[in-house]
C-alpha cells in the first residue's frame, strides 16, 4: 500500500485544501477507494492517471458536483461540508470543468457572471432582479484585457470563439471570482498548441498575481512538468503516488500510471 507523505509539516500552517479518505460508489462500482491528498498554499498540484482512473470523479466529489459516499474535506485545516457546487464557490473553490463549464449559446459577459449576475443598484434590481449588462460588459472587457484575450464581438455567442479562447474565459472566470483554490479539469485539452501555451502561462500568471492554489488534471506530461510543483497519480480509483516534481521523472510517473513499477 502507498504510504502518506506529509508535506504539511515542512511548511507550517494548514494546507489550503485537504481531502481525507474520500470514497465514491456508483451503484456497486467503487469509483474512488479511500483517496486522501493535500493541496498546499500557492501550490500547483497535478493529478494524472489513465482514463477511468478516477481523476474527474475525485475533484467532482471534493467540490460537491457529486455526492461523495464517505470521507472529509478540510479547508485551511477546518472541516467543511460541501453539498453542492454553489457552496464550494462560496468557500472559494472555483472549478473549470472539462468542456462543459460554459453555455455556448450565451455571450462572454453572461458566461463570466453565470449564476452571479450583477444586479442593477436601484429598485428595479432589488425588486425584480434586473441585471446590469453595462457593468458586466465593462468588467468583462477589463478581465479579458488582463488575461490577454482578444474577442472581436462581446455580444456574440461564446461558441464563435476558438477553443483556447473559451478555455481562457473559463480560467479567467475562476480568477475573476477570486477563488483561493482553482481546480482545472484538462485545461489545455482539445485546443491548439499555441493556445495550450497561452492557457498554461495564464495559470502561472494568476498564481503569481493572486496567490491562488491550483489543482490541475491533465493527460499531458509536458504540461504537468512545466507548471506543477507536485503530482499525484491515480489508478483504478486509488491514489498510487504522490511525488514532488523535482524529485521525480516522467518515466517514474508514467510507470505509476500504467502500474508497471509496482508489478
Amino acid at each position: 500500500m502507498f504510504i502518506e507523505t506529509t508535506v504539511q509539516a515542512s511548511q507550517g500552517g494548514a494546507p489550503a485544501l485537504e481531502a481525507r479518505n474520500i470514497c465514491k460508489n456508483f451503484g456497486g462500482i467503487k469509483a474512488l477507494d479511500d483517496v486522501s491528498f493535500q493541496l498546499n498554499k500557492g501550490e500547483i498540484l497535478g493529478i494524472v492517471g489513465d482514463n477511468g482512473a478516477g481523476k474527474s470523479t475525485l475533484i467532482k466529489s471534493v467540490t460537491g458536483a457529486y455526492r461523495k459516499s464517505s470521507g472529509d474535506v478540510l479547508l485551511n485545516g477546518n472541516s467543511v461540508e460541501i453539498e453542492n457546487t454553489r457552496k464550494a464557490r462560496e468557500l472559494g473553490i472555483e472549478t473549470v470543468y472539462q468542456a462543459s463549464g460554459l453555455v455556448e449559446v450565451m455571450d462572454a459577459p453572461s458566461n463570466l457572471f453565470l449564476g452571479r449576475e450583477k444586479i442593477q443598484s436601484g429598485w428595479l434590481g432589488q425588486a425584480f432582479g434586473f441585471i446590469n449588462r453595462r457593468k458586466m460588459r465593462s468588467e468583462t472587457v477589463d478581465l479579458l484585457k488582463t488575461v490577454n484575450i482578444k474577442v472581436r464581438n462581446l455580444s456574440a455567442p461564446i461558441r464563435n470563439l476558438s477553443g483556447g479562447q473559451q478555455q481562457s474565459v473559463a480560467v479567467g472566470r475562476a480568477a475573476y471570482w477570486q477563488g483561493e483554490i482553482i481546480i482545472l479539469d484538462e485545461p489545455a485539452n482539445n485546443i491548439g498548441v499555441d493556445q495550450q501555451r497561452a492557457v498554461l502561462a495564464l495559470i502561472e500568471r494568476i498564481r503569481e498575481t493572486h496567490g491562488v492554489s491550483f489543482i490541475m488534471i491533465s493527460h499531458n506530461m509536458d504540461h504537468i512538468f512545466k507548471v506543477a510543483d507536485r503530482v499525484i497519480i491515480m489508478r483504478g480509483g486509488r491514489k498510487v503516488g504522490d511525488l514532488r516534481i523535482e524529485d521525480t521523472t516522467r518515466e517514474e510517473v508514467v510507470g505509476l500510471i500504467t502500474g508497471a513499477s509496482l508489478a
Binding site: 470543468y97 453555455v103 455556448e104 449564476g115
Partner: peptide, 18 residues
C-alpha cells in the same frame, strides 16, 4: 438569464450553481 443558461447548457448551468 438563468433560464436561458439552463436551456443552453444544463450541465454548465448546474455547475455554475444555478
Amino acid at each position: 438569464q438563468h433560464l436561458t443558461a439552463v436551456g443552453g447548457n444544463g450541465e454548465a448551468a448546474r455547475l455554475a450553481g444555478i
